[in-house]
């Protein structure tokens, strides 16, 4: 292995941080969802890197499962965005605060 594991993990953390920042900072729900996808991928990268480091298939399997769940999450998240938009015609998550206590 020519590249140190720490590099991969650091890269993964950076992507995760960027994704988290996107979720927190952006108000467009679509961009937020994409940022979440970024975070998923950061996690996947860590899984794959660790799997490679420990020569264990389990990390691959987990990454595969993560992709599946991410797909499901994206589908549902987008559906929610669609109906919220259809109802109220805005795409700013801060305006969707019906659950405010």
């Amino acid at each position: 292995m020519s590249v140190a594991l720490a590099n991969y993990i650091a890269l993964s953390a950076v992507i995760f941080m960027i994704g988290a920042a996107g979720v927190v900072l952006r108000r467009n729900p679509l961009v937020m969802l994409m940022a979440i996808e970024l975070m998923w991928n950061a996690a996947n990268l860590a899984f794959v890197a660790y799997a490679r480091a420990s020569m264990n298939n389990a990390g691959h399997i987990f990454a595969f499962l993560v992709i599946t769940v991410a797909a499901a999450e994206a589908a549902i998240g987008l559906a929610i965005v669609v109906i919220v938009f259809r109802r109220a015609e805005f795409v700013d998550v801060d305006e969707v605060s019906v659950l405010k206590g």
């Binding site: 988290a20 979720v23 108000r27 729900p29 405010k100 206590g101």
Partner: peptide, 18 residues
Amino acid sequence: LFRSFQTGLVRAYALTIV
């Protein structure tokens, strides 16, 4: 007290998780 935590802002929740 706990009501004040429920802002209804998705991003605030996300930040809490972070």
